[in-house]
């Protein structure tokens, strides 16, 4: 059983998004901040006539970002709302197969946003749980 996944670069790792969930990949223009929102909500951006809620993936996972944020974002839709998840770069769309549990302990925030692992061309990739990524860290606390 293989799925198509989109491989993106994030914090020095290559991670996978299920292609079915990804609407497009874009470069964001202006991001308008949303005061008082959770820290991982980077703001709002416009994509054609839609308003995207921009999710800062670094902050959602709980990582420190080296340097400035990239403008590259993966557009996903969840419960009817479009989101843009900022990533460091987009590699490719490949076929991947789900693997069994690895036994290795995922570190920190990665554990929270992991939906499992997939294998493609001999590489093991972390499959991102998009809903958890969007919900951000405080969802656990709540």
């Amino acid at each position: 059983m293989s799925d198509l996944v989109l491989i993106v670069r994030l914090a020095g790792e290559r991670v996978a998004f299920l292609v079915d969930l990804v609407a497009s990949v874009v470069e964001l223009d202006d991001i308008a901040p949303v005061p008082r929102a959770a820290p991982h909500i980077a703001g709002l951006a416009a994509l054609r006539s839609r308003v995207l809620t921009v999710i800062d993936a670094y902050r959602s996972i709980g990582l420190e970002r080296p340097g400035t944020a990239s403008r590259e974002a993966v557009i996903v839709e969840l419960d009817g709302h479009p989101y843009a998840v900022t990533v460091d770069g987009v590699d490719d769309v490949v076929e991947a197969v789900a693997t069994g549990p690895l036994g290795a302990q995922l570190q920190g925030g990665w554990l929270r946003v992991a939906a499992g692992t997939v294998e493609s061309d001999g590489d093991i990739l972390l499959l991102i749980d998009v809903a958890a990524l969007i919900a951000g860290p405080q969802a656990i606390a709540a």
């Binding site: 008082r36 959770a38 909500i41 951006a45 308003v51």
Partner: peptide
Amino acid sequence: AAPAVMATGLYAGTTLADNGRPIL
């Protein structure tokens, strides 16, 4: 707006101004 934005309790929705910028 997305639930994470609504959760602030400050906003009623999002919109685009005539210049295409998002506004809360």
